[in-house]
Design a protein around this nucleic acid. Structure first.
Lengths: 233, 233
DNA sequence: ACCTGAACACCGTTCAAGT
DNA sequence: ACCTGAACACCGTTCAAGT
């Protein structure tokens, strides 16, 4: 609750783009997408809106910078060192993104927004590169690099984003079970004529383990990619 | 341009939730996410904000209803009739969603937002059911229904959303080539040490065909699903 | 070069009042 | 039951003025 920590303590460090982005991330984490306003930001940074606009063009740019900072940190784990198999490296990248979206649920929407604006921004190449290197290491023929990397990336971001919903505002395992139980119940109460499949799958939703399920999807896509490999390799 | 068509013509049909949702979709299509405001809506419907709030709880609900209406229409194509193979049926569903997002680019963000709020809304079961039925018809073992359907759904929505960027505000094939060329150029100018893979793939980005690429991804996931099939079937 | 803070235009939402 | 429209609180952004 304590909505206003560090409210009017005098600012010691000078304002900077990094400091502003950091404060924006804190606000987004604490209060969700709606929590990032210039007024909350000026209060937390003990400054005025003009000062922020000196370092950042507008709110959209700030949101993009916050997204990029979190994604860059999430992908900074593996320093290109040849550790295990490419498959394991892909799983590591996937769980890095999974955890980032779990910790910062606002990323789900933000990533979709940014990617649907085109691969122009810095985020798309970052994710694409991390996954693509391992796709190449897998021995996938070059013609299929784009397809294989895209399939992995979209599954990872989509599944991680949907998963974040299960953890949102959930404090304990009991809360989680309660939440999933409620959704499963809603699915079971759908019209039997219109939703036979969804009803049949409701029980799996109730009992599933998030990370295990996520991993199963990764391995499914990896199995598809394996069929692309040239016989020679 | 002509921002204000049908501005103050007297309203003939009575206001209704359907009419409001229809107007909201028109505004979103014409002006993007930022174009949907209650003021634009009241003008287009020749009414006041209070009248809209009588039929709709708030803006979020209106956005959800608009999303649901478009998705429902996109999935209404196949009437469960046994036409071709399950694979073809999945491709048909996928292209239905692809075209819907292409026609209504605001869907990309909106779907991500709605799905990341959990499978509670009406949209998630709709998409899940359309794809899942065909997954079942494919002979996938029941334990893998959720995984297989999720993998397909996330690839379809993610790839279609990213694709919509290529078509955004693009009027001709020349525009499209220009846009893709610019992105490919940006990719080619990335740091060679940090982005070797992305640079290598830039050329594929320039020359690719959207629908062909999308289909290749579907078939990749389908190949992965095929490895799940029980030997017996 | 960097920051202040009042002011502006615009937004979602409410509500007393009408029919 | 359904609609009107003024009003409220809040938002992103600008800009003349300061240091």
């Amino acid at each position: 609750m304590a909505t206003r920590e560090r409210r009017s303590q005098r600012r010691t460090e000078a304002l900077s783009r990094e400091r502003i982005v950091e404060a924006a991330i804190e606000l987004l984490d604490a209060e969700g997408e709606g929590g990032l306003t210039f007024r909350a930001l000026t209060q937390r940074l003990a400054t005025g809106p003009g000062a922020i606009y000196w370092h950042v063009a507008n709110k959209g740019e700030l949101l993009d910078a916050a997204t990029d900072a979190v994604i860059a940190a999430a992908l900074a784990g593996e320093p290109a060192g040849p550790a295990g198999s490419p498959q394991d490296a892909i799983r590591a990248v996937a769980f890095g993104l999974f955890d980032a979206i779990d910790d910062h649920p606002w990323l789900a929407t933000q990533l979709a927004t940014q990617l649907s604006r085109g691969p122009g921004g810095p985020v798309a190449p970052r994710i694409f590169e991390s996954i693509g290197r391992q796709v190449r290491a897998l021995g996938v023929p070059e013609d299929n690099w784009f397809t294989a990397t895209s399939a992995l990336m979209h599954y990872i971001l989509g599944a991680a984003g949907q998963n974040a919903a299960n953890a949102r505002g959930v404090e304990s395992d009991v809360d989680r079970a309660e939440f999933l139980g409620a959704v499963a119940k809603a699915w079971e109460e759908l019209d039997p004529d219109d939703y036979p499949f969804t009803r049949a799958v409701a029980e799996q939703l109730r009992e599933h383990d998030d990370r295990e399920q996520f991993l199963a999807g990764i391995d499914l896509v990896l199995a598809g990619i394996a069929t692309l490999r040239l016989p020679g390799r």
